[in-house]
Amino acid sequence: MPDCESVDALAAQVRRDGFAFAEGAAVDAILGAAGGLDDWDVFAESWDHLDPDQYLAATGRYRRRRHAVFDLGAALDSSAAPHRLPDQPHFQTLAHNPLQGGLARWFTPMTDTAVGTRAFQTLMGFGRKVFARLDSAAATGSWRVEAHQFRIEAKPDHAGEPTPEGMHRDGVDYVLVVLVERRNIECGTTSIHAPDGTELGSFTLTRLRDVALVDDQRVLHGVTAVTPRDPSKLAHRDVLVLTYCRGT
């Protein structure tokens, strides 16, 4: 399927439903045409070097992350690397994150190696292509993109919480979630809800590069806790989350 048709189909689903889920095999066809994944192993290996999320207090040791912020121009076919902005805190209001809102949270920055991979830049461009098709302002303006590397660790005596704040919005325009790895994990189902609480759909990211695309202005999302399939072995869920805000 041609790149533009695949991207258009995903954008149409987000426009209709407020979200879309796509399996990794379909996504890989788009990403291969959009820039490639030849250094995916280098990108994925960077999840082994994340630092604990200190803002989760007693449970912080079960979530690891890194963070970076970028400015993307409007040109959809630009081959230029995204412009990385100076390291800065991640901030959400209490309305969007009742658990940790109102805090300027500083996380360990993403490494230059991870950011410089073709795989990462292709994923960022993929999100821009989909979301830019949703309205004229998104198509012609620049984007502020926050990148979050998450590793949720599950222990025999403690389930991992991908979204400890529960059903929520991120306080942005659009969200792209990409599965990087599931190791020895059960559950982790994403559900999408309307503002009145009505469930609109659910799915589980289980395959490499399965993705979720969300219109954060229209719907809420949350992910169920993850547990080890085999309690005697290490268990974790690795995802890349990219949030997109329209610029001017």
Rank of each mutant, 00 (worst) to 15 (best):
R66W: 04
L240W: 02
D238W: 05
I192E: 01
L85K: 14
G116M: 10
G160F: 01
L85S: 10
Q13M: 09
F120W: 14
R128K: 15
D196A: 11
A29R: 15
Q54E: 13
G222K: 00
C245V: 05
Q54C: 07
P228M: 05
A58T: 09
R84L: 11
L31N: 12
C245K: 14
P52W: 01
Y55T: 03
A20M: 07
D173L: 04
T140L: 13
I185C: 05
L76Q: 15
R182Y: 02
L123H: 14
N97H: 05
R66L: 07
H168M: 02
R66Y: 03
R207T: 07
T111W: 09
S202Q: 13
N97Y: 00
I185A: 00
W143Y: 13
P86S: 10
T224M: 04
R63K: 14
T108P: 03
T93Q: 08
F21W: 11
V115Q: 09
P156R: 10
A9E: 13
E165Q: 00
G201I: 03
D216Y: 02
G247W: 06
H49P: 03
H67A: 06
I30E: 15
T227I: 06
I152A: 01
R207W: 02
G18F: 03
R246T: 07
L205V: 01
L76I: 13
G32F: 08
L220R: 12
I152Y: 01
G127A: 04
F21T: 09
T140W: 07
A154N: 05
A29D: 15
T189H: 01
L99W: 02
T227C: 04
S136D: 14
G24Q: 14
H221Q: 04
G102P: 11
D17P: 05
R15Y: 04
G197C: 10
N184P: 08
W143G: 06
L56Y: 00
A57D: 12
E181A: 13
V219H: 09
V115G: 08
P156C: 10
V145N: 08
A154C: 07
L37D: 12
L94N: 12
V42K: 13
R105D: 06
D135S: 10
S78H: 10
S46K: 06
G201N: 04
V178T: 15
E45W: 07
E161M: 06
G247I: 04
H83W: 12
W143H: 09
D41H: 14
L220V: 01
T122H: 12
M167I: 00
G24N: 11
G35M: 09
I185F: 00
V175R: 00
F203T: 07
F91S: 11
